[in-house]
Design a protein around this nucleic acid. Sequence first.
DNA 1: AATAGTATAGTTCTTAGTGTTATAAATCAA
DNA 2: TTGATTTATAACACTAAGAACTATACTATT
Lengths: 106, 106
Amino acid sequence: MTKKYKSEALAALHESMQGLHDIGIVPAKTMRRFDSSCLAPIEDMKPEEIVEVRNKAGVSQAVFARYFRVSLGTISKWERGEKHPSGPAITLLNIVKRKGLESIYA
Amino acid sequence: MTKKYKSEALAALHESMQGLHDIGIVPAKTMRRFDSSCLAPIEDMKPEEIVEVRNKAGVSQAVFARYFRVSLGTISKWERGEKHPSGPAITLLNIVKRKGLESIYA
DNA sequence: AATAGTATAGTTCTTAGTGTTATAAATCAA
DNA sequence: TTGATTTATAACACTAAGAACTATACTATT
């Protein structure tokens, strides 16, 4: 659980820094350095997690694929562990997991 | 402007359908079919647009890269038109454009 | 029984993305 | 002015994600 705690702490810290920046205390440059060094590391999604996220959204692989703008085959491969989602795809998966599928609908 | 209007109309329609689904009128299966057929087509981001989105967020290519979980070189190539962002990356770019960089922070 | 939706699976091919290194401009501090 | 840091471009070889296509099979609907 240490890892998760650390991540949450960093998230909270980041929010505070952003607040300080917003009211003009922390300059943009410092903010940039801060961002660069504290952003959470890549937490890759395991195949079962991807299935879980999709099922919780209640959509088929085909629909899921259209939301992510990838092919149907790609979703199938993610879920079977044949291929691993790219960086941006992992980011999207995390967003859907936290905020739901509708939040990524352009 | 026809294209954008159409897209907005579909978005609104989708929202309505989702509402009907939420209150139990439209079954999940119908919802799935609806999703599959009405999701907006891919609107790719031009290099200048990507620069604009990043500048509006007020971050360097390096920081932008970490948010997207891609390498710095990839951002540079997107912005110079040497490489085109993948499907999931385009989705993310659209989210950042509409809702800001913070909204994709995991 | 037939149709349509769903998911797995394999194949070939393209290209996005990585990692590295070099270069050069602008910015800032000593 | 000098030196250090940040910023962005650029070229290289390499890896692997993803596309497109096809086939199979299970399930549910009509």
